Amino acid sequence: MFSKEEAARLRQQFWISFGQYMKPILGAEGLPVNWVNYKTGVKNIFFRMDAEKKQANIAIEIAHPDEGIRELFFEQFQEFKLMLENTLNEQWDWIPSVTNSYDKQVARIEMVLPNVSVYNQQQWPDIITFLKPRIIALDEFWTDVKPVFEDLK
């Protein structure tokens, strides 16, 4: 078992490594992207990547505080479900209401990689191999649909 400090150091080390690995990869618009802290440019819509003790995941998180607006955004994403799945080449889980790690009600569209641990450096390549193509595909998808969500603001 790791101390809190060691666990935090390993998590930080993983995300630094991931960021360095992704740094040379340009976004869909041919511009540099901060992949680790991806900015959607639309308030309350986030692309979240996480690596934990037992899994890694990537998600689109709709965190608008107004439940009705959150539902509207989620429904709009559902309109683009086929486009998203075609861009990702897989189906993700659609969760209309869940409590996130910040104890807020959100809607999530996510994919989970079970049975990996950020605390096992031997598994970092598996986690990176899981996250990399998906965040790149999300960027490609977002480039096409972002204007619709900007209009919903």
Rank of each mutant, 00 (worst) to 15 (best):
N120W: 03
Q13W: 07
R9G: 10
Y119C: 01
N115Q: 06
I62D: 02
F74N: 02
G41C: 09
A28M: 02
F18T: 01
R11S: 11
N57F: 13
T87D: 06
L84K: 03
E67Q: 06
I95L: 07
F14G: 10
L10V: 14
T87C: 08
L72C: 03
F77S: 04
S101Q: 03
W124H: 09
T99Q: 04
G30F: 01
Y102R: 14
E110Y: 08
F141N: 11
P147H: 02
K104D: 09
R48Q: 10
P147K: 06
A59I: 03
D144C: 07
I58H: 10
P96I: 05
D126L: 14
Y102G: 01
E75M: 11
E150D: 05
K132L: 04
V42P: 08
L113R: 10
G27S: 06
E29G: 05
Y21Q: 12
F77A: 02
A7N: 09
K53L: 14
V145G: 13
V112D: 13
H64F: 03
N89Q: 13
E61S: 12
V118C: 10
V112F: 08
T129W: 08
N34I: 09
T99A: 07
T40M: 00
T129L: 01
D103K: 15
K39N: 02
E79N: 10
N89M: 13
A7T: 06
Q12V: 11
V145L: 05
W35T: 07
W142K: 07
D103Q: 15
F77K: 04
K43W: 00
M111C: 15
K104T: 04
Q55R: 15
L10F: 04
N120T: 12
R134Q: 05
Q91Y: 14
Q13Y: 08
W142Q: 04
E61V: 10
R134D: 07
D66L: 09
P125D: 11
K146E: 06
S97T: 00
A28W: 06
R108M: 12
L72I: 00
A7K: 12
G19E: 02
Y38C: 01
V98P: 00
K39G: 05
I69R: 07
Q76F: 05
P32L: 01
Q122E: 13
M22A: 11
E52L: 14
M111H: 15
V36R: 00
P24V: 08
Q12K: 14
P65C: 02
F80R: 11
D93Y: 11
A107F: 04
F14R: 08
I60K: 10
S3K: 13
Q121R: 09
V112A: 05
F18P: 08
